[in-house]
Every structure is written in C-alpha cells, then in structure tokens.
C-alpha cells in the first residue's frame, strides 16, 4: 500500500519536473498515500478531517502569508535603499542572500526530509524490519538527506529557471526578502505541526517579492499554471496511488512487479525526454520558459 502510494507520488513529481513546474512533493506524497489507503483499506481508512486541517488549510494559507510578508519586505527594502548607490545596495543584498539562502535549506530539511524519513520508516515497520515504536534509524536519516541533496543538484535547475525567471525577474533585494519570508513561514508552521509545502511557500514568497518591486512584471500565466499543478497534485497522485494499490491488491506479487516495471518505464521515459532540452548552469538564466520539445506525454501520470 505504501509502495503504491510512493509510485503515485514519484511519477507525478517527475512529470511536473519535466515541465519545469515546481509542484509539491509533500502533496504528491500525501495524495499517493491517501489514494492507496482508500483502495486498500476503504474510505474509513482515511482521516479526511485530519487531512483537511493539517494539509488543505496550510496549503492555501502558507503561500499567501509568505507572499504578503515578502511583498511588504521587498517594498520597504526598496524604499529604504532608494537613495543609496545601486552598486553598493546590490552587492550588500547579494552577500546577504548567501546567508538567507543557506537558511532556507535547513528550514526545507526540517520539513521535507522528515516526511521522506517518515515514509521510509513506515515501510520498514510494516515490513517487520523495525519494531512498532522505533524511530528512524541513522542510515534512513542519512540516505533521505543525501537523496534530497542529490535530487536538487541533478534536477533543480529546471525549477530554478521557473522560479528565478519565469514568475518574475528576481533582483538580489527581492531574493533576500523572498528567502527571509520563506524561512520564517516554514519554521513558524513546522513548530505547530502544519505539514506545509516548502515549494508553495517559496513560490508565494517570490510572487510577493515580484509585486513588491514597482514595475516588476509578474507573469501570471506561469503563476496560474503552477496553481493548477498544485490543485491537481493531490488528486492526481491519489489516483495513481489508488490504481497501483488495486493492481497490487488483486494481482498479488505479479501485480506488484507489473506496477514496479511500469513505474520504472514511465520514469525513464520522462528522464529521457528531459535530456532533449536540458537546463544547466550556463543557460539557466537565459529564458523564462522551460520547454519540452517532444510532444507532452499528456495524461502519463494518470494512465499509469
């Protein structure tokens, strides 16, 4: 069941990554698990109240809060430094960005790495490899951290282009404000146990920073596509998770193997498609569109 949930989450994440859309891996994970549990254990297996309270409300609220905070901060930052020399100001904020960007990472880790560890530990417990009240072992913690770092290093630049150029043209004071807003929102809500999406918080912060600088154009088309991707993430991953779960349930071991093979095939197809139009360090800031030259593999996430 957890396997089916993971398949749903992974496939959906890869597809949105190919399109350069920052979708929430957290929501894909929740969606995949909810779908798999629904099919496997029936409707009563899902705590919809809990899901709404801990996922839906923060999902809507957190990007808005981050956006408002970044908007105010950007506006004030430009206001305060308006009369100073632009060269000095840009350099100052650029140095500050090193600190603020570094802070986003641990905030991101406190949130997203924990979810990965949680799911892996859950798998180990259900497989009987760990006791029922065991915490995540050290190797799980280490590999979850390593996997997140590697994934960002290998594939992050597609998302960087959308975030840094696609939404709005980000200058260093805006970047600083957006990062400060993202970090505080993530840390504040992690304290209260809201499972929010770092992806959505950062996007909200960047949008706010774009609005805070006068004359900065916000590309609402890109923002709209991202919003649609967010809305679809949970149900789509739930659908893939549910279908996988039913195949596993009715097909037994054979079904599990089939699902695993299909997942690997779709994943390699997506990676191959991304190769045709790579985004790397030397061209990451050239355009604001992440294009896929081949025909978009539409519905691949749901067809699996």
């Amino acid at each position: 069941m957890i396997f089916a949930g993971l398949v749903g989450a992974i496939l959906w994440n890869l597809l949105t990554w190919l399109l350069g859309l920052p979708s929430s891996s957290s929501h894909a994970l929740f969606g995949g698990l909810i779908g798999a549990v629904w099919v496997g254990a029936g409707e009563q297996g899902v705590h919809f109240d809990k899901a709404a309270e801990k996922i839906l409300i923060p999902a809507v609220a957190s990007p808005i809060v981050a956006g408002v905070a970044a908007l105010l901060a950007t506006y004030l930052a430009y206001r305060i430094t308006a009369r100073a020399r632009e060269k000095s100001v840009t350099r100052g904020f650029r140095l500050g960005q090193i600190a603020s960007a570094s802070l986003v990472s641990p905030a991101h880790g406190t949130n997203d790495a924990q979810k990965t560890m949680g799911v892996i530990t859950l798998t180990l417990i259900s497989a009987g490899a760990l006791g029922h009240d065991a915490g995540p072992p050290v190797w799980v913690i280490a590999s979850a951290g390593l996997a997140i770092g590697l994934g960002t290093y290998l594939g992050g630049r597609r998302i960087i282009r959308t975030m840094g150029k696609g939404l709005t043209d980000i200058r260093s004071p805006q970047g600083f404000a957006a990062e400060a807003a993202s970090t505080t929102v993530i840390l504040a809500s992690a304290h209260l146990g809201f499972a929010l999406s770092t992806t959505q918080v950062c996007s909200g912060g960047i949008l706010g920073a774009g609005l805070g600088r006068k004359l900065a154009e916000v590309r609402w088309g890109t923002a709209g596509r991202m919003a649609v991707a967010w809305l679809v993430t949970l149900p789509a991953a739930a659908l893939v998770g549910g279908v996988s779960a039913s195949v596993v349930k009715h097909g037994g071991t054979f079904g599990t193997v089939v699902i695993a093979l299909v997942a690997v095939a779709v994943a390699s197809f997506i990676v191959a498609a991304s190769r045709r139009n790579p985004v790397h360090a030397s061209n990451v800031n050239d355009h604001h569109e992440v294009t896929v030259r081949t025909a978009t593999p539409a519905g691949v996430g749901t067809a699996a």
Binding site: V65, A69, A73, G92, P173, F176, A177, V185, A188
Partner: peptide
C-alpha cells in the same frame, strides 16, 4: 499566530538588513 509571527519577523529582519546596507552604501 503563524501568520502574524511570520510577517512580523520577515519584515523586521529585511528592514534591519536594508538599513545596514544603507549604512554600508
């Protein structure tokens, strides 16, 4: 609470930093 703390801390930190950059300039 989360909303208020987040907005407050962010705006305060960025304003203080901007003032610092202003001094540096």
């Amino acid at each position: 609470e989360v909303a208020a703390v987040s907005v407050g801390v962010t705006v305060a930190a960025v304003v203080v930093f901007a003032l610092g950059v202003l001094g540096l300039a």
